[in-house]
Design a protein around this nucleic acid. Structure first.
Lengths: 352, 352
DNA sequence: TTGTACGCGTTATCAG
DNA sequence: CTGATAACGCGTACAA
């Protein structure tokens, strides 16, 4: 096991600026200037240095640079989403935005283990990261991370935080659900039900309210008995259909809280001989390709543009590193993705 | 945008060892000794230093330490799996193993973009990572990563590499499929078909051969016409059932190349009135919870123990960092997960 | 028991 | 145009 006390094993040391200087017969200062294009140098010396550097495979040591610049050009990403299906696109977006600024990302998956999270934060702080992005589950608002007095910008992306002053990015669940409602209404559906996840999720409440707003904006009554909350599973979508058909036979559309639920709903409907979308139109939420595309018929659904959210998080982090202060929640638009479960082929639109 | 030329913004600098020394009225050497428990110090000075260090929130700068030790205590993880559903558990395992050694992980997702990968590798090398783990898709054997002469240990985990001398970890697909075959045979099935993914995948060929070995070991004939290769999708599972029933009505079991395929197969069977597992037993591959558990009936399947594979990769990387050399492929065992799609002794169930 | 000085690899400043 | 030198923050011999 490697421990901090072990010496580095004998391995060819990477070439240093000194090696290059020595080989090229100049001083280290000259090498630095030649390679970084600073100061006034004769073209031939610059070229000579360049070639010997290349020959030796010289690569400046970022550790030394960081020590000097007081900037490590790294950020820490703390993820509390074990499952990762939402974190991945967010992460991709973050990386996308950050690699343009040549910043690397430390990944820390602290799955709801406070001790582990503490250790990760300590480690990141010791590594002098330029910033920390927290991403994770959205069940309950998590407590803001404890920097222990350190002064490092922290941004929450796709994570619910208790601190209202903390800067954080979330998808516009309200607008997304509203979009789904508008789509159904535009297709002539009037008796719309809502099968969704556990009420304790802020996202569930937001989506419910967004859908409600769309209906009421078009003079459609909002009825509590058409809203069914359960778990985030296919099985719940299945079960909900039974309840729904018994309670409200006249339903002509169901807006679902997730694609998984929608899939359960569609399957249950088909087994009962109810045609989708002819009899009942279905709209999902998440645009989780693997589910949405495999459903028969493929799901029209709402995409949260998580990669874009991640990219935005990266950009904002860069701004924060440069000293910009930010606070409070920012909601980013969702997008309608039309497939076949609502029976219309129309172009996607973007919310707010 | 942050660029290397920008100065660090004015932010309270983290306390240095000098600050602590100054505040405690001792020298930096004394502080170092007190905090690291080295040398001979009076108990009260050590204590005094400790408290002032805590008061100032002093945290040793890993950058400076790394420079000195010539070990950064970081590794790079290059992932080429865009969707991440396989990478995530591997990553978790790697982190698990590495955090015990206090090593942090740089994440680089280079989705099949060679230029981007180059840039990532350069960046990792500049940051003087102690090692690099490559994980990713298993379509075609990828070319070994180019270190450009640098001498850093590289390990491939759950990634197909062209270089036979490169150290890499893979799940034992052959053994896993064999396990699936044994299970079906043990349940009395004798007419077993195989619906799987594209033949160009090494995993597909391995699994096919593993299944074949199990059948032949029990004196069951292996028939080419019972093997159907297609895509990795539910839709293909669906389509395959049509072909299979037309061609071979006597089938009493189907071993599938993935859970997605298995799900398509199960759905198609149910829609045709074929009972699972009563008429036909189904076994999947991957144990992708979200699919396997939601299938009706839930899928008996093969788990590749990817988190364990990740942990193993982490351990081996630690050994490589300490100078151990390693080469060639190592296959790690798979595991049978019994649910209901084979009607195993424990969880018998009547499907409609 | 404690302080001093050097080196890790860079960059920037100031002489030459 | 180029070379020497001082930082950056830390650990550690060695001197006091």
């Amino acid at each position: 096991m490697a421990s901090p006390d072990d010496p580095a094993p004998t391995r060819p040391r990477p070439a240093t600026i000194w090696d290059v200087a020595h080989a090229a017969g100049v001083s280290v200062g000259t090498v630095s200037k030649a390679l970084n294009g600073r100061g006034q140098l004769r073209a031939e010396t610059r070229e000579a240095v360049r070639t010997t550097a290349a020959r030796l495979g010289f690569r400046p040591n970022d550790l030394a640079q960081s020590l000097l610049r007081k900037r490590s050009f790294t950020i820490g990403l703390i993820s509390t989403d074990r499952y990762g299906r939402f974190s991945i696109p967010v992460l991709e977006g973050i990386e996308d935005a950050l690699e343009a600024a040549r910043i690397s990302v430390f990944l820390c998956s602290a799955s709801d283990d406070p001790a582990r999270e503490r250790q990760h934060i300590d480690s990141l702080l010791a590594k002098r990261v330029d910033g920390i992005i927290v991403t994770g589950r959205r069940t309950d608002a998590r407590t803001a991370i404890d920097l222990g007095g350190a002064s490092v910008p922290v941004l929450y992306a796709f994570a619910q935080v208790a601190d209202p002053a903390a800067p954080y990015l979330l998808p516009d669940d309200f607008g997304g659900a509203s979009l789904a409602g508008e789509h159904l209404i535009g297709l002539g559906r009037t008796c719309i039900a809502h099968v969704t996840g556990p009420e304790r999720f802020e996202a569930v409440r937001q989506r419910r309210d967004g859908l409600r707003q769309a209906l009421e904006a078009h003079g459609l009554a909002w009825r509590r008995e058409r809203v069914l909350s359960g778990s985030w599973s296919e099985a719940w979508g299945h079960a909900a259909v039974t309840k729904l058909l018994a309670r409200r036979p006249g339903i002509d559309a169901i807006a679902c809280g997730s694609d998984q639920i929608a899939r359960g709903v569609v399957d249950a409907l088909r087994e009962r001989g109810v045609r989708v979308p002819d009899d009942v139109a279905i709209v999902g939420f998440d645009n989780w390709e693997i589910i949405a595309a495999a459903t028969r018929p493929p799901l029209t659904t709402i995409d949260m543009n998580l990669k874009h959210l991640g990219r935005e998080a990266g950009m904002r982090m860069l701004a924060m590193i440069d000293g910009d202060i930010a606070a409070g929640v920012v909601r980013l638009g969702c997008q309608l993705v039309v497939r076949e479960s609502c029976g219309a082929a129309r172009a996607g639109r973007v919310a707010s």
